[in-house]
């Protein structure tokens, strides 16, 4: 089975150097072959699970974090903003 690993890598935002494509393709195919071991099952329309529900939150304000705390792990910040390479718009 052909798997377009270049496309998957692009979607996953991971580099896949050309010289590694062949080896990775082989390894990936064996993993996919393993997970393909599934029975034919009747498929539901949606994946709703009405028997296992979550609690919702009341609309009540909780104080936000100090900006310094939110930015302490940011690789690059200027004037309270997070810096990223120029986005093309």
């Amino acid at each position: 089975m052909e798997i377009d690993v270049r496309r998957i890598a692009k979607l996953a935002m991971l580099k896949l150097p050309e010289e590694q494509v062949e080896a990775f393709e082989k390894e990936f195919a064996s993993i996919v072959a393993m997970v393909e071991h599934l029975p034919e099952l009747e498929s539901a329309d949606t994946l709703l699970e009405p028997d296992n529900q979550m609690h919702l939150r009341a609309d009540e304000i909780v104080p936000s974090y100090p900006r310094d705390a939110m930015l302490q792990n940011v690789p690059k910040a200027i004037a309270g903003c997070i810096v990223v390479p120029k986005t093309v718009e």
């Binding site: 909780v62 936000s64 974090y65 900006r67 939110m70 930015l71 004037a79 309270g80 903003c81 997070i82």
Partner: peptide
């Protein structure tokens, strides 16, 4: 509001 002041983890 001032930038990045209405934020939490």
């Amino acid at each position: 509001a001032e930038v990045n002041t209405l934020c939490c983890p």
